[in-house]
């Protein structure tokens, strides 16, 4: 594979090449890993914005409006939309493009749909790698859209610089139950569909929860009522995003987030390497008739006998 040529074409903003490289890393191929290793230093620090929230709150419609604003302001904008894969068939229907008409209107917008694959309901394990390819490509802003259920809430916080949690007026009662999860990850809260009843009651309620949580007034997440469908208050949201970005940069918050992210990624990759290698060891045990031996005992025995040199070989051969 001619990596240098790939890089050259990426820098020339060639979308066919970009798409192919993303496929390589999305499928976790050897070539994909080599590409990221070789060109990691070519990355630009793109600003990553996460958009999450329960299903049906209008995340895609809201994102469609944000794309329009950001595409006019920046040279290159990317969207990565993650949808769940079926744990039974492994298949997926990726339908986020349905509501994102604006990706076709602007030539400087790139959008990629990603199936969550193995990871349960959350982001796919390759999402971070896809974002890195987009950073090598040199995009200014990356939006990561994900359904906010369970683990993915944390995933999206770790993978992005700023998180927008989207709710609707009807979310009122369920916010009580969501407090522990979704209320802790947002940097900005958006009440979409605010043309409906109770929209301002709910935003006041969310504000009251957040004020109790945050001491620093500057960092208390703003709560904004919008209607993506009617294009109401979207500009206000955009200026809040830009404003918060400045504060995050000034206070070194983004830098800290990126540092934590790198460390976590090393941990994930190591774990992945171990699991792939341990799977082979496990195949050896499965053949033995040791159903009366405790799994702890088996594990300790394996741990004693692991040959780290051979683990490395297995990883390289994969």
């Amino acid at each position: 594979m001619d990596f240098e040529n790939f890089l050259k074409k990426l820098k020339e903003k060639d979308r066919v090449t970009l798409s192919k490289v993303i496929t390589l890393v999305d499928n976790e191929t050897k070539e994909g890993v080599e590409f990221l290793k070789k060109f990691y230093k070519e990355r630009k620090d793109s600003f990553r914005i996460g958009i999450t929230g329960p299903p049906g709150v209008g995340k895609s419609t809201l994102l469609n409006k944000l794309i329009e604003r950001f595409a006019k302001k920046y040279d290159s904008v990317s969207v990565v939309a993650v949808d769940p894969s079926s744990p039974f068939t492994g298949g997926a229907i990726l339908g986020d493009r349905l509501r994102m008409e604006n990706i076709y209107k602007f030539d400087n917008v790139y959008m990629r749909s990603v199936a969550s694959r193995g990871s349960l309901g959350g982001l796919s394990s390759s999402t971070e790698n896809i974002l890195q390819v987009l950073e090598i490509f040199g995009t200014d802003v990356i939006f990561v859209e994900t359904v906010g259920v369970g683990q993915s809430e944390l995933d999206v916080m770790e993978i992005t610089d700023l998180v927008i949690v989207t709710l609707v007026p009807e979310s009122g009662d369920s916010i009580q139950a969501m407090k522990a999860g979704i209320m802790e990850i947002g940097d900005i809260f958006v009440i979409n569909k605010s043309d409906r009843e109770d929209a301002y009651r709910v935003s006041e309620y969310v504000k009251s929860i957040l004020q109790m949580k945050y001491q620093d007034k500057e960092l208390t997440p703003p709560v904004i009522n919008v209607s993506a469908k009617n294009d109401t208050n979207i500009d206000e949201l955009v200026s809040r995003i830009e404003n918060l970005k400045e504060i995050f940069i000034q206070k070194g918050i983004i830098e800290r987030k990126r540092e934590i992210r790198r460390k976590k990624e090393v941990r994930e990759i190591l774990r992945d390497m171990f699991i792939k290698s341990i799977d082979r060891e496990l195949k050896i045990i499965e053949n033995k008739n040791d159903k009366d031996v405790s799994p702890y005992e088996i594990s300790e025995k394996i741990l004693k006998n692991i040959d780290f040199k051979s683990l490395e070989d297995i990883w390289k051969e994969r």
Binding site: S85, S86, T89, G90, G91, A92, I93, L94, G95, R97, L98, S113, A115
Partner: peptide, 16 residues
């Protein structure tokens, strides 16, 4: 077709 292909384990982009 989109759901049949997804049920068969494929990843389907549906654009409407």
């Amino acid at each position: 077709i989109a759901s049949a292909l997804s049920d068969a384990g494929m990843e389907v982009i549906y654009t409407g």
